[in-house]
Design a protein around this nucleic acid. Sequence first.
RNA 1: GUCCUAGUAGCUCAGCAGGAUAGAGCAACAGUUUCCUAAACUGUAGGUCGGAGGUUCGAAUCCUCUCUGGGACGCCA
Length: 611
Amino acid sequence: MCRRILRYQNELVHVEQLEWYRGKFKLSSLFIRDGSFLLIMKEETRMNYKKELAEILHQLLEGEKSAEELEMLIEKPKNAGHGDLAFPCFTLAKLKRKAPNLIAQELSEKIQSPTFEKIEVVGAYLNVFLNKQAVAEKIINDILTQKEQFGSQNMGQGGNVTIDLSSPNIAKPFSMGHLRSTVIGNAIALIVEKCGYQPIKINHLGDWGTQFGKLITAYKLWGDADKVKANPISELLALYVKFHEEAETNHALEDDGRAWFKKLEDGDEEAVELWQWFRDESLKEFARIYDLLNVDFDSLAGESFYNDKMDRVVNLLEEKGLLVESNQAQVVELTEEELPPCLIKKSDGATLYATRDLAAALYRKETYNFVKSLYVVGHEQSLHFKQLIAVLKKMGFEWAGDMAHIPFGMMLTGGKKMSTRKGKVVLLEEVLKESIEMARHNIEEKNPALANKDEVAKQVGVGAVIFHDLKNNRMNDIEFSLEELIRFEGETGPYVQYTFARACSILRKANWQPEAAPQNFTATTWEKEWKVVSFLMEFPNAIKRACENFDPSQVAKYVVDLAQVFNKYYAEVRILEESEEQAARLALVYAVTQVLKEGLRLLSIQAPEEM
RNA sequence: GUCCUAGUAGCUCAGCAGGAUAGAGCAACAGUUUCCUAAACUGUAGGUCGGAGGUUCGAAUCCUCUCUGGGACGCCA
């Protein structure tokens, strides 16, 4: 091979450029392999010590396994006594036909790197201890200079990601059930943005559909304009509930409701006017809640927005010969996909949910040219999204593969789904109010001298509710429990916020400024601090995991873990006490505040400096 | 009936591209405040990882079957 190439991360780079890279990235490790490749690691990569170890092992094993394979085998030990990285040698035993503990022993003797302080062999394991001084200094300085940028990545490269979130139904109260999509979607938007994507948050309002026909029917039968004006949502909800009660015995009501919806879709003046009114009132109420939750949207294009864009979809389907009649309705058959047929038009010609989502998908691709299009919608709609994507693929739209349903479990009361129809809902606003009140109560008890009590109570109360939703795997159902929600101890939002506030308090008392921080901390062994440092190091990985899996709980869990180790450290070490190590300790405290704050921000939770 | 999802400590959950004694929080019990905010910290107790097979040097993690809860399966969204 005449051209010497070196690999720079995943790219191939010409060796002539080596000097340029050396200047720019301070190469830490340089390997020459079979005279034709040079493998380098640039400065940022060095932070990924796992990669470095994998690379070294790869060299030592003379290519018997790829660096990537080796990296996957490296784990971080659960037990601190087992070091920071561990490599089990079992799999090599077969390849080398040698006892795994012997292999570990041999490897341990050959590894030489300033990054690794010591290598221990325990059975078949290679336990690697990082050089605490070097690593801690590196991490702390990174955070000191990058501040809230620490942990940011660029896998998104500016690509647009549309996120369908929240999407409450107009004329219905904003219930606990809607919290999940709102809060999960918002956190995903923030996380994805942190990873270099451009999120586009779309509130796909449920402002269209047969339900409005039903509501109009109910309003015309039993409604009172003054009452609705005085108390829009609760009055409309009462009408909606009454409709369903009456409809159980009087089946003509259902037909009447359907008829009114058809009129609405055809632009009947009275129907449109009522609809517009209901919609405006609802949006006013929702605005208060979004404000509390700190959520805003890039688009409010809901279902009604696609009203005039559906003919095109239907025509396209017809042109492609996908539309077939079935019991007077128009459907797309999905037998090859092993899915039930997707209903496009009802027998009365009115459109359906799927029709609107098809139109919306097309619109979003054309308007935003997304690289990913996410739908943060409950798990019970999985089939619908499978069908939606399948139909788009059948239509020949390759980009349908970039669409993804992000499902989540249900909010339950008494083991059952909350049902608007039966009027059995818990209002989100009520819950937020209770939580804020609880926070306020705690402040009076614990820190009555606090300056901006109302503001902090709001941040803490709302933080508790958001965190409670985000801390667990999306897919778990959540049994609604007010007690559980407004618990501020243990693995909760307020616990993390409290940890942050106490850390801030230390910095305040020390009158510590990041600009005045020293660059090196030679007086410190970092022994007591090591656990905290090693958690700080994990932040970028947590974000990456959260982004790849669209899973905010990864960040929530991380932030609790960091708070826990910091609290232990805080209880053990008196930081404000004069000591040679104080400079390093204060810098560490500052680093913790930065990461906690940023972690909370990614969950849309504020971090008060005092509470 | 088919498909999707979950089953880990009394409760809520982590851990699941297989790895070293299965971890937190809550609740229980016992402690810590002349000391950086006790919304905290320390300790004790608590588990045949739903069950049965299988793959493997090694399984909570992968495969098959099975039981239980929840959900979805054409004119709701």
